[in-house]
Amino acid sequence: MSGILQVISAGVQTSVQDGGRELARRYGVPRGGAMDLLALVAANRLVGNPANAAALEISGGGAIFTLLRPTLLALTGADLGAELDGRPLRPWVAELVSAGTTLTMSARRGGWGARAYLALAGGIEVPCLLGARATYLAGGFGGLQGRALRAGDRLEVGTAPQRCWSLAGGQWPAHARPAYGATPTLRFIPGPYDQALEPDSLAVLRTATLRVGPTSNRIGYRLEGLPLRFTQPQSLPSFGVLPGAIQVPPDGNPILLMAEAQTVGGYPVVGVVITPDLPLAAQLLPGDSLRLAAIDQDEAHAAQHLWASWLTAEPELDDWSAQLALSGALP
């Protein structure tokens, strides 16, 4: 049996994800793809893949993989205490590993983090459906047979980029990463239906601290701790929604829509978290807290500029690799 990565244990949940299906939204298919798009892009670019290539989204601890062939890999996103054959794996760094190496995830460290992203040179090779390789878990298609990985699965990669080995040791610059940490601040632009809320509710929402509810998943997070009140009963015709939208159902407990959210919704959307802060949301688990911060379009625009610079950042060679490169010792 061929393959480059064998799943010994899939941990809490591991699935194949990429940049998602933006163009399939018109058929009612969620964008889906990686929850933390910055971590996906960084992992791919560290190993020389196209930015949105398919990688593994590893949620929570307990995952164990064996690499069956030598490869260049990078692990980004949450620090889940990854080890290669018992030695700590440097996160956000492209690493060459030899055949037979075992990669294990223990549990999150530093009091934050939910999802790590593992990219292999060449990208995970699964069928491309509706423009993407992402697993749509609720819809049961994409990725590997439309499901999360389980023990015994073997994955193959596409053709590795030429001379990708020379990327080994490259590190994703710290200045091109989101401000990961416990109780992150998610910046949002109020509207379009924020006026549906009572003025008091609206004022509190602008700086609220909320807790991620127990039923939260890739579709969305139920946010607890602040029941919002409406000025009047709301009945809106369904309209298009996006990941990042904060919608409020009749019970007043807001829902933050995430990657696998449906394409339309009928609950009033009272604010939309800006794209650059969605990676911070992606790293929350049920029980974690977050802060909201209302901003205006100008602030959002500045954040979008920074976001674009993160996505296009160049990996940096660490001292050891740089010395090797200078000495001409790299193959």
Partner: peptide, 22 residues
């Protein structure tokens, strides 16, 4: 402009704010 999702009486147009402004 990156996409447009029509609904019963509305259209959600997504765009790259660094390429085109509201």
């Amino acid at each position: 402009v990156s996409g447009a999702v029509p609904a019963i009486s509305s259209l959600l147009v997504t765009f790259d704010p660094l390429q085109i402004s509201l």
